[in-house]
Design a protein around this nucleic acid. Structure first.
Lengths: 253, 253
DNA sequence: CTTTCCTATATTGTATACATAACGCATACA
DNA sequence: TGTATGCGTTATGTATACAATATAGGAAAG
């Protein structure tokens, strides 16, 4: 007879997934500072999983780009420069531009565009109230992420979708990420409206099968987001709203 | 006293890396067919590593895109459609286009362009002999890969470099991959020369800080490669040269 | 007082044992 | 004869034990 296990296991999801989610949350919430070495034993304690699934999760997070392997062994939380983030946003916009081009060139039925338009309308509805409340802003973030995900899917290109997912793994490279960065700024309202205009144009371009125009507007969309992130980083008034900002190493670090 | 271990361990590289390289080789060499489930125990036998490093390697290969997780557990070798591959090439070209644009816009010193030009000249030298021998063709592949890697680095953008590396992990999405696909074709010679012309243009554009032109030529470069892959797949005369072609599922599969 | 070396401790890399779930096969019943 | 169910085997998911290395701290010597 073995000793009764102290650890209570949640069998509904795999331990590996549980550990991965828990660790990612710890990183993005700022509980683990960038540059900090992640102790496996500590991760075992906090996640409740055993060392093997924890290690698998660490490997996945490294591939995701949130962790960095230490040559002597183990992993540390990755730190990003401001340019890293803006490059990531531009990169994502470029990929989404390609997705939009694929969608336009390959043709999309009206039925497939329907969910996109619903998203668009729902966001329009949200933006009608000025100023936007915190609650409706979080719905905006969700709707915006959904719009981008749907748009990506329209490309019908699994490799591209996969790559865009990877590019979105980095905080702030994802649409919800940079949108959130804008939230605390007074200019946010205007920016969101311009973003909606971009969304409208890309749908129109896809409908009319204008690949180049669809691509161009998504890249412009990303450039808007980059300018915006810069602005958001200048006045760091929203660090409490978005702890993941701590991942960005500033000049003082 | 424990039994003497039969397994002889190679301590020069980590078991995880060894297993990853061995498994990738097995996949790309065609020893493991696409769709085939990878048995961990079998992998333990063939790689010489234990189950833990083998599992780590499997996770990494899944993130790399060569394996696919089976819902019920375990991994299988991923199969790619012809469109998956051509999309991957176009995707890579788009990313390299962005890299070239970054390089041009951010400025590159003459000293940094030197290795690129050396590469270019070396390839020119190789292409002088007609027809190209198999040996010099493999040097061409290496030089071409080096050129693309150097070009990527010029962007000075770690996130972009990382993403391009990821995109190159898929067979045939890498420059050496699609170049090899061309090797068995009679048109190869002409294509290589056009490719050199693209290389020349991109260097010139970067020197003159013409970001848009630099980007455009890299995307054109990728489109050439796509047309070429299609051609190569039509006459499947080179399956023996490039076993990884088996990863592409045809209509008959 | 500083520097270097040695030792001890802690943490990672690896191996293996155990538990659980899935798949297949055989048998029985309809 | 076909289908369904149950059992057995096999493989994966998880946990833990063991080994090796890196790091930090202390002691000794210059």
């Amino acid at each position: 007879m073995k000793a009764a296990p102290e650890r209570e296991v949640d069998r509904s999801v795999s331990q590996t997934v549980k550990a991965q989610l828990a660790l990612r949350d710890q990183i993005l919430s700022g509980a683990l500072r960038p540059g900090e070495r992640i102790s496996e034993l500590q991760a075992v304690e906090t996640t409740g999983a055993s060392r093997t699934p924890v290690r698998m999760a660490l490997v996945r997070l490294e591939e995701e780009g949130l962790l960095e392997a230490i040559p002597s062994g183990g992993f540390m939380v990755k730190a990003f420069s401001e340019r890293d983030i803006s490059d990531s946003i531009e990169l994502r916009g470029t990929l989404e531009g390609l997705a939009a081009r694929f969608a336009a060139e390959r043709g999309v039925s009206a039925r497939e565009l329907e969910p996109l338009k619903e998203c668009l309308a729902a966001i329009d509805e949200l933006l009608r109230q000025v100023p936007i409340s915190i609650e409706s802003f979080s719905s905006y973030v969700a709707l915006n992420a959904r719009f981008h995900a749907l748009l990506t899917e329209l490309s019908r290109s699994p490799p591209l979708v996969r790559q865009i997912d990877r590019a979105s793994a980095l905080p702030f490279a994802s649409p919800s990420g940079f949108v959130m960065a804008q939230s605390a700024l007074p200019e946010a309202q205007q920016i969101l409206i311009i973003g909606q205009e971009h969304h409208r144009v890309v749908i129109d371009a896809i409908e009319n099968r204008e690949g180049a125009r669809a691509e161009a507007v998504m890249r412009e969309h990303a450039r808007l987001a980059v300018r915006n992130l810069r602005l958001a980083l200048r006045n760091r008034t929203h660090l409490d709203l978005l702890p993941a900002l701590a991942l960005i190493k500033t000049a003082t670090d």
